[in-house]
Amino acid sequence: MLDIMLPHYGELPLLKIAVESVLAQSDSRWRLTVFDDNPAERVTGVPEYFAGLGDPRVRYERNPQNLGITRNFQQCVDRAEAPFMVIMGCDDVMLPRYVERVHALVEQQPDAVLVQPGVEVIGADGSVVRTLADTTKRRVYAPKIQGTVRMEGEALAVSLLRGNWLYFPSLAWRTSEIQAVGFDPDLKVIQDLKLILGLVTRGGALVADSEVVFQYRRHNESLSASSAVTGGRFSEARSFFLAAAAGMDAHGWPRAGKAARWHLSSRIHALTMLPAAAKQRSGGSVRVLTKYAFGKPR
């Protein structure tokens, strides 16, 4: 059994696509739970849609009060019951073999804590796209994966701190382990990396696979993208990486500590945001981005 937890914030048309992609899975060993965290004025049609599905494997709940992204993520973690779980994006797409492939990978690597299946990126219209961010991630930071690869320990921590090449909504997590660590409620756009590093330092192994079974939708208007242009993402990132460096040093992983201090991919990301900030004539954002990109590691 795989618990697919879906925190919802967006519009009904994309939500329908996400839900119907789960219903179309070739392997029926799944259960879908949707936690609707939309403001009240935007919920039109969503409860009615789920009421009309009539599928006992699908559960829909509207949060009585708005939780925000990280607290809704944590609710997904707390409410999961199956041995493995997914926190799927409400606009992403599971290709028909996703559940089947995740079960197969877990059977091959029964002690794995985290499973990263193959992912392709789609745009707002659903077509496969090649963005600068994803091309850089795959060519520069991500390990070259052919078939199935197992990673763990300091080598995995170094790889992720150089550049987080994982796709959070596509990951399958061992439920007991993610519940033991949980999300940091003080983080908004980098909470997934902190959680993953917590699992790695606990001895957790990652299994990555090259078979594409998930479509990750890339939006320029996402919280992550908008906070990157204003520089807000990087204020949070600076504090996170400095704390991560200290934590890795204390754990006896000096190479990971060094990678955290340099946080190279995050600096390059800041550089790519400079033209957009300049176009908006935001001097404050330009200064924040420039300082972050070229500042010396501490």
Rank of each mutant, 00 (worst) to 15 (best):
D3A: 11
L6I: 02
G10V: 02
G10W: 03
E11K: 08
L12C: 07
I17Q: 14
W30H: 02
W30E: 06
R31W: 04
L32E: 03
D36N: 05
N38S: 13
A40E: 15
A40T: 11
A40G: 04
R42V: 10
E48D: 13
G52T: 01
G54D: 07
D55R: 02
E61L: 08
N66V: 15
L67P: 11
R71Y: 05
N72Q: 12
Q74E: 09
D78Y: 00
E81S: 14
P83T: 07
V86F: 13
V93W: 08
E100I: 10
R101S: 10
R101Y: 13
V102C: 11
A104T: 11
Q108P: 03
P117N: 08
V121Q: 06
V121D: 08
I122Y: 12
I122R: 11
A124M: 10
S127L: 15
R130A: 13
A133Q: 14
D134T: 13
R138N: 14
G147Q: 05
G147S: 08
G147I: 05
T148R: 04
R162E: 13
W165V: 03
Y167M: 11
F168M: 11
S170N: 09
S170E: 07
L171C: 00
I178P: 09
G182L: 06
D184C: 11
P185W: 06
K188V: 14
L195I: 02
G198N: 00
V200L: 00
G203A: 00
G203L: 03
L206C: 07
V212N: 03
V213R: 08
R217S: 10
E221K: 09
S222Y: 08
S222L: 06
S224E: 12
A225P: 04
A225L: 01
S226M: 10
G231Y: 07
R233W: 12
S235A: 09
A237S: 11
F241A: 00
F241E: 00
A244E: 14
A245K: 01
A246Q: 15
A250M: 06
H251G: 09
H251W: 15
P254V: 09
A256H: 01
K258C: 04
A260V: 00
A260I: 01
A278F: 13
Q280L: 15
R281E: 13
R281S: 07
S282M: 05
R287F: 07
T290M: 02
F294N: 02
F294Q: 00
R298V: 14
